[in-house]
Design a protein around this nucleic acid. Sequence first.
DNA 1: CAACAGTTTAGAATAATTATAATATATTAT
DNA 2: ATAATATATTATAATTATTCTAAACTGTTG
Lengths: 142, 142
Amino acid sequence: MLKNAEFTNKLRSSGLRPTKQRLKICEVLFNRDHTFHFTINDLAKNISRELNEKISLATVYNTVHAFKKKGYLKEISINSDKSYFDTNTTNHHHFFDEDTNELIDCDDKIIETPKIKKNILGKKINSVEVLVKVATDNQNQK
Amino acid sequence: MLKNAEFTNKLRSSGLRPTKQRLKICEVLFNRDHTFHFTINDLAKNISRELNEKISLATVYNTVHAFKKKGYLKEISINSDKSYFDTNTTNHHHFFDEDTNELIDCDDKIIETPKIKKNILGKKINSVEVLVKVATDNQNQK
DNA sequence: CAACAGTTTAGAATAATTATAATATATTAT
DNA sequence: ATAATATATTATAATTATTCTAAACTGTTG
């Protein structure tokens, strides 16, 4: 459970002013036991529910994007209809349950990190991530 | 280079009426040498350019979704701002060039298909796909 | 505390996608 | 073939996610 002062430092050290709103968003995002996958709307709702306070949706957008740029959040692309973000910013893999739309993080103890046999573009490899889609047998190719 | 009659059969055999519009869209999508990655807007533009004929945007949306449901197209989620579709419906991997936004298909000769060490949900595995993001060194974590 | 740069805000604007409902077309039964 | 029906197409409106705008506000620096 990080304190306000720690978030203040974290923000300041990356060149972001520690405003009231940003500190509250830090609390909601980073004072958790586990990885948090969310849309910006989810987050805005969580803020008003958990903190009983409203932060303008535009600010939530601004902040999430600022945090992403600073590497505190990572954007996930599974569904293309909405943007999801992830508090787990390490290189990791996912299981995606097509029945429930649940997304589960895992590391290379669960899913092997694959070898790139030929780096066809010759550029620097920034990430190698695996997505495994699962569903109850029969139907569900959506 | 498939013919109209072949597309007609293909459509009819999957329970889709072979309408003028669908046949034209088949031509644009499937009479190609290589995999085609596109947004619905791209496709609509291609239709009016290549075939010199306009198909209502709503029809293009309907058709692409119908084709996806029938397994003729696959939806890709790399960027979350738009929906991309792919004529390569096999299980395959991707390189994504963050400098140019180019997406390149490849199979397990280029990128190894990873092993799932533990199927944590115990459900049927529908796909295992790898995404490798590359960019010119330095900057570019976007 | 004054001055300035950076931030927040409500609401407008934009862009992608989906819904609507009238018209048109393909299929089927006659 | 033709009529009846079921399905598609279309233009347009509606919806949804996201970004933009410009005025008011807040944090920081001197």
